[in-house]
Protein backbone atom coordinates (compact mmCIF):
# COMPACT_ATOMS: atom_id res chain seq x y z
CA UNK A 1 0.00 0.00 0.00
CA UNK A 2 2.75 2.42 0.83
CA UNK A 3 5.04 1.28 -1.94
CA UNK A 4 6.66 4.14 -3.84
CA UNK A 5 4.69 5.11 -6.88
CA UNK A 6 7.66 5.16 -9.15
CA UNK A 7 10.84 3.18 -8.73
CA UNK A 8 14.09 5.02 -8.25
CA UNK A 9 16.03 5.17 -11.45
CA UNK A 10 19.12 3.58 -10.01
CA UNK A 11 20.18 1.50 -7.05
CA UNK A 12 18.71 1.57 -3.57
CA UNK A 13 15.22 2.85 -2.81
CA UNK A 14 15.17 6.58 -2.10
CA UNK A 15 14.31 7.46 1.47
CA UNK A 16 11.06 9.31 1.73
CA UNK A 17 11.65 12.42 3.75
CA UNK A 18 8.58 13.80 5.44
CA UNK A 19 10.52 16.07 7.78
CA UNK A 20 10.35 19.16 5.60
CA UNK A 21 6.67 19.03 4.65
CA UNK A 22 5.60 18.19 8.20
CA UNK A 23 7.73 20.96 9.69
CA UNK A 24 6.33 23.42 7.17
CA UNK A 25 2.76 22.42 7.96
CA UNK A 26 3.31 22.62 11.73
CA UNK A 27 4.90 26.07 11.47
CA UNK A 28 2.21 27.42 9.17
CA UNK A 29 -0.68 25.93 11.15
CA UNK A 30 0.85 27.49 14.25
CA UNK A 31 1.07 30.84 12.49
CA UNK A 32 -2.55 30.61 11.39
CA UNK A 33 -3.61 29.64 14.89
CA UNK A 34 -1.80 32.60 16.35
CA UNK A 35 -3.41 34.89 13.80
CA UNK A 36 -6.88 33.66 14.64
CA UNK A 37 -6.82 33.27 18.39
CA UNK A 38 -3.91 35.39 19.46
CA UNK A 39 -2.91 38.34 17.39
CA UNK A 40 -5.41 39.59 14.92
CA UNK A 41 -8.42 40.35 17.05
CA UNK A 42 -6.34 42.50 19.38
CA UNK A 43 -3.96 44.17 17.00
CA UNK A 44 -5.69 44.45 13.68
CA UNK A 45 -8.89 46.42 13.72
CA UNK A 46 -10.20 47.43 10.36
CA UNK A 47 -12.00 50.49 11.70
CA UNK A 48 -12.69 52.27 14.99
CA UNK A 49 -16.19 53.17 16.08
CA UNK A 50 -16.88 56.82 17.00
CA UNK A 51 -16.80 55.99 20.72
CA UNK A 52 -13.46 54.21 20.37
CA UNK A 53 -11.95 57.11 18.44
CA UNK A 54 -13.22 59.65 20.97
CA UNK A 55 -11.86 57.52 23.82
CA UNK A 56 -8.37 57.82 22.34
CA UNK A 57 -8.46 61.55 22.99
CA UNK A 58 -5.61 63.50 21.42
CA UNK A 59 -3.86 60.22 20.60
CA UNK A 60 -6.47 59.59 17.94
CA UNK A 61 -6.11 63.01 16.39
CA UNK A 62 -4.22 63.93 13.22
CA UNK A 63 -3.22 60.36 12.46
CA UNK A 64 -4.53 58.29 9.54
CA UNK A 65 -7.46 56.30 10.82
CA UNK A 66 -10.57 54.49 9.62
CA UNK A 67 -13.84 55.40 11.27
CA UNK A 68 -16.85 53.10 10.95
CA UNK A 69 -20.41 53.70 12.04
CA UNK A 70 -23.79 54.83 10.88
CA UNK A 71 -24.78 58.04 9.16
CA UNK A 72 -26.94 59.82 11.72
CA UNK A 73 -30.32 60.46 10.09
CA UNK A 74 -31.01 64.08 9.26
CA UNK A 75 -27.40 65.22 9.42
CA UNK A 76 -26.46 64.89 5.74
CA UNK A 77 -25.65 68.23 4.13
CA UNK A 78 -24.56 68.45 0.52
CA UNK A 79 -23.21 71.65 -0.98
CA UNK A 80 -23.57 71.41 -4.73
CA UNK A 81 -21.22 74.34 -5.40
CA UNK A 82 -18.21 73.35 -3.32
CA UNK A 83 -19.05 69.60 -3.55
CA UNK A 84 -18.67 69.43 0.22
CA UNK A 85 -20.50 66.61 1.93
CA UNK A 86 -21.03 66.80 5.68
CA UNK A 87 -22.67 64.28 7.95
CA UNK A 88 -22.39 62.85 11.44
CA UNK A 89 -21.30 59.31 12.20
CA UNK A 90 -22.54 57.53 15.31
CA UNK A 91 -22.13 54.08 16.88
CA UNK A 92 -24.85 51.56 16.08
CA UNK A 93 -26.48 52.40 19.43
CA UNK A 94 -26.66 56.07 18.40
CA UNK A 95 -23.97 57.41 20.77
CA UNK A 96 -20.54 58.91 20.18
CA UNK A 97 -21.14 61.44 17.44
CA UNK A 98 -18.34 62.57 15.14
CA UNK A 99 -18.75 65.25 12.46
CA UNK A 100 -17.37 64.17 9.10
CA UNK A 101 -16.48 66.30 6.11
CA UNK A 102 -15.99 64.68 2.75
CA UNK A 103 -15.40 65.94 -0.77
CA UNK A 104 -17.27 64.88 -3.88
CA UNK A 105 -20.29 62.77 -4.66
CA UNK A 106 -20.76 59.76 -2.35
CA UNK A 107 -21.35 56.18 -3.56
CA UNK A 108 -24.86 55.47 -4.79
CA UNK A 109 -26.03 53.77 -1.63
CA UNK A 110 -25.01 56.57 0.72
CA UNK A 111 -27.95 57.82 2.74
CA UNK A 112 -29.37 58.39 6.21
CA UNK A 113 -28.83 55.50 8.60
CA UNK A 114 -26.45 53.67 6.27
CA UNK A 115 -23.28 52.05 7.58
CA UNK A 116 -20.15 53.85 6.41
CA UNK A 117 -16.40 53.51 6.76
CA UNK A 118 -14.39 56.70 6.23
CA UNK A 119 -10.63 56.97 5.89
CA UNK A 120 -9.01 60.18 6.94
CA UNK A 121 -7.87 62.18 9.95
CA UNK A 122 -9.71 63.34 13.03
CA UNK A 123 -8.63 66.93 13.50
CA UNK A 124 -8.12 68.82 16.74
CA UNK A 125 -11.12 70.91 15.68
CA UNK A 126 -13.25 67.77 16.21
CA UNK A 127 -13.93 67.49 12.50
CA UNK A 128 -13.10 64.26 10.71
CA UNK A 129 -11.62 65.07 7.30
CA UNK A 130 -12.45 62.12 5.08
CA UNK A 131 -10.22 61.25 2.17
CA UNK A 132 -12.19 58.13 1.25
CA UNK A 133 -15.84 57.45 1.90
CA UNK A 134 -17.04 53.85 1.72
CA UNK A 135 -20.58 52.60 2.15
CA UNK A 136 -21.11 49.41 4.12
CA UNK A 137 -24.01 47.39 2.80
CA UNK A 138 -26.02 45.21 5.14
CA UNK A 139 -26.73 41.55 4.43
CA UNK A 140 -30.30 42.42 3.46
CA UNK A 141 -31.72 42.32 -0.02
CA UNK A 142 -35.23 43.69 -0.30
CA UNK A 143 -37.54 44.36 -3.18
CA UNK A 144 -38.80 47.95 -3.36
CA UNK A 145 -42.17 48.48 -1.71
CA UNK A 146 -45.10 49.50 -3.85
CA UNK A 147 -44.45 52.93 -5.35
CA UNK A 148 -40.85 53.02 -4.09
CA UNK A 149 -38.12 53.48 -6.63
CA UNK A 150 -34.67 52.13 -5.95
CA UNK A 151 -31.73 54.53 -5.58
CA UNK A 152 -33.92 57.54 -5.07
CA UNK A 153 -31.87 58.80 -2.12
CA UNK A 154 -28.87 59.25 -4.35
CA UNK A 155 -30.76 61.29 -6.90
CA UNK A 156 -32.37 63.52 -4.31
CA UNK A 157 -28.98 64.14 -2.78
CA UNK A 158 -27.57 65.09 -6.16
CA UNK A 159 -30.49 67.29 -7.16
CA UNK A 160 -29.32 70.66 -8.36
CA UNK A 161 -25.73 69.58 -8.63
CA UNK A 162 -25.92 69.69 -12.40
CA UNK A 163 -25.82 65.93 -12.82
Amino acid sequence: MTAPMTPPETGAPRKRSLVLPITAVVVLVGAFGWLIWGGLDKNVVFFLTPNELLAKGTGGMNVPVRLGGQVKPGTVKWDDKTLDLRFDVVDTNGTGMIHVKSKGAPPQMFRDGMGVVVEGRFGADSLFQSSQLMVKHSNEYRAPKAGEKPQEMYKSLMKGSGQ
Binding site: N139, Y141, A143
Partner: peptide, 20 residues
Protein backbone atom coordinates in the same frame (compact mmCIF):
# COMPACT_ATOMS: atom_id res chain seq x y z
CA UNK B 1 -17.91 37.47 12.00
CA UNK B 2 -14.56 37.36 13.78
CA UNK B 3 -13.38 40.79 12.70
CA UNK B 4 -14.79 44.10 11.57
CA UNK B 5 -15.03 44.24 7.83
CA UNK B 6 -16.44 46.40 5.08
CA UNK B 7 -17.86 43.23 3.53
CA UNK B 8 -21.23 42.35 5.02
CA UNK B 9 -21.87 39.20 7.07
CA UNK B 10 -23.53 36.19 5.47
CA UNK B 11 -27.07 36.69 4.25
CA UNK B 12 -29.76 34.15 5.05
CA UNK B 13 -33.29 33.59 3.75
CA UNK B 14 -34.51 35.79 6.60
CA UNK B 15 -32.49 38.77 5.37
CA UNK B 16 -33.22 38.21 1.69
CA UNK B 17 -36.63 38.52 0.06
CA UNK B 18 -38.04 35.28 -1.43
CA UNK B 19 -37.86 36.74 -4.95
CA UNK B 20 -34.06 36.72 -4.65
Amino acid sequence: RWWRTLHQVQSSPSTVDPSY
